[in-house]
Simulated assay, not measured.
Amino acid sequence: MTARLLYVCARPQRTAAAAEWASFRDGLGVGDDDLIHHDLVRHPLPDDLDRFAAVVVGGSPFNVTDPDKTDAQRRLEGDLERLAATAIEGRTNALFTCFGIGVVTRLLGGEVTLMHPEGTGPTDITLTAAGRDDELFGVLSPRFEALTAHKEGTASVPPTATLLAENDACPVEAYRAGAGLWATQFHPEPTADAFVARMVVYRDAGYFDADAFDEVSAHVRTASVEQPTRLLRSFAARVVSA
């Protein structure tokens, strides 16, 4: 693959950030030099996005619904909104994940709420009819397993977006917006082992009972995440063929 991709990191924890970059690199099926790491927590979004074929946005311990945000978090969210608008307009391709879907939902006038959290571990996700027809999601099985861990979710698909995937706990697991933006609530990038390593970093962050780490991690390791990886490969293939 010769097209260079940009990984936008929204994680303050450097260990988790480096591991997430590696998970996206492996999931996309690209080399080290083909996925550029940009630390959005510490550096503003670059102005020269057009030198990248596409952008993937990782997760974060931040929440759109956080009541007391630092100036750094507000700046980061503003940069992600600017990136989302660029993709919606078709000036780049972008895949937003986890925290990122909340930023996009708010940008589109949707509601981000604490009413749809999901625990740490595998969950079953179902494609909608639009998802089965989507150029990225259409490669997936109509029902598949993915890893989740979040405290907030999108209440309903924003008016200008197309719902692609859902489940019982979280009504909006993925949607498409505009010409070049896809957003997922679930994590498409980590293997089960990589997810457990991430759990170590966020053990005391309130995503799961810290005293139940061994039990939760054992459940995570039962997950089959082949389908989410196919989504990343589909995203990379779209960039190469563009």
Rank of each mutant, 00 (worst) to 15 (best):
H43S: 14
L6E: 03
G29D: 15
A94R: 10
G153M: 02
V104Q: 05
R132M: 12
P122W: 00
P67C: 06
L181S: 11
S224E: 15
S23H: 08
T160R: 12
T160M: 12
A165V: 03
M1I: 03
G178T: 10
T86Q: 12
P171D: 01
K69H: 00
G90D: 03
V56G: 12
P190L: 07
D68V: 10
I101Q: 02
G206T: 10
L5Y: 05
W182C: 14
F24H: 06
T92A: 11
A174W: 06
G110Y: 02
A236E: 14
F235H: 09
P158I: 04
P142N: 12
R4N: 02
G206M: 01
L80Y: 04
G119W: 05
E135Y: 08
A242T: 15
A174T: 02
D68N: 10
T162E: 10
S241Y: 09
H37I: 05
V220R: 11
M199Q: 11
T2E: 13
H187K: 07
A194D: 13
A22R: 14
E152Y: 04
G100A: 04
C98H: 01
A87E: 08
A22N: 12
L108Y: 01
F213C: 13
A3H: 15
S217D: 14
T222Y: 03
C9M: 02
A242M: 15
A53F: 04
T128N: 02
T70D: 05
T222V: 04
S234Y: 08
R11V: 04
D50S: 15
R132Y: 00
V220P: 03
A161K: 07
L76G: 05
E135R: 15
G153R: 01
L107G: 07
C98G: 04
D204V: 05
V216Q: 09
G31W: 12
Y207K: 03
Y175P: 01
D168P: 00
A53L: 11
A72G: 05
V225G: 04
G58M: 04
G90I: 12
V30Y: 15
R4K: 14
A212V: 09
